[in-house]
Amino acid sequence: MKKGKFSILEHELVPKHEILEEREAAALLDKYKLQKEQLPKIKKSDPVIKEIKAEVGDVVRITRRSRTAGKSLSYRLVIE
């Protein structure tokens, strides 16, 4: 990282993004009976995706703070 810049992952408004392992992703798709294409998408060019170095086809788990539930999980498929 260049000097003087900070990682956007540390910004309080950026929710936590994690790349799922193959096994976890498969479990997720099985749990919701989903095709990979039915997941919400996120572009590879998304600043957070670039930062965590996710590849096309990866599934990321996003953990957000939620007004209604305290914490909420969602998953996105990385696309071109």
Partner: peptide, 22 residues
């Protein structure tokens, strides 16, 4: 029935309706 919100092609919009399913 699994609590997800989906559109016609089955693409998930929310994994849990309103985050809390309430």
């Amino acid at each position: 029935y699994d609590g997800t919100v989906r559109e016609t092609k089955g693409i998930v919009v929310q994994f849990k309706y309103g985050d809390d399913s309430v």
